[in-house]
């Protein structure tokens, strides 16, 4: 009974403890800190702006088309490159002449009829 009274009193005291609460003061130089934050934010927005313009369809679609065209040109150019096919022919010719085929012990066993 007594402890219940005590607890009720403590709860009441807890509620009353903030009745005359005063305002806490901010740390000094808040304005300078906020200004430096705004300035650093401005510095990063240049990149954001750049990304925004690059990401625009009017810029991005022609850009992508240009990249694809360059890739396609490169593929076509290398596919029809005559020097590449001559080199391939040379390899084939030397392969035929020197018989590059891999010899194994099984083939040696079966050399005689």
């Amino acid at each position: 009974m007594n402890s219940k009274k005590n607890v009720d009193q403590l709860v009441e005291d807890a509620f009353n403890s903030i009745n005359n609460i005063e305002r806490a003061s901010v740390k000094p130089f808040l304005l300078s800190r906020v200004n430096s934050r705004i300035l650093s934010e401005k510095r990063t927005t240049w990149w954001e702006n750049a990304a925004f313009y690059i990401g625009k369809p009017s810029f991005a679609i022609p850009g992508l088309a240009m990249l694809m065209l360059i890739n396609l040109t490169a593929v076509i150019f290398y596919a029809t490159d005559p020097s590449a096919s001559i080199a391939e022919q040379n390899i084939q010719a030397s392969s035929d002449e020197f018989s590059y085929s891999i010899a194994s012990i099984y083939e040696n066993e079966n050399t005689e009829p």
């Binding site: 403890s17 609460i21 005063e22 806490a24």
Partner: peptide, 16 residues
């Protein structure tokens, strides 16, 4: 501990 609470009320206030 809220800095604006009076010293004698600090304990109860922190519980609240």
């Amino acid at each position: 501990n809220h800095p604006g609470v009076q010293l004698e009320q600090k304990e109860r206030a922190s519980e609240l």
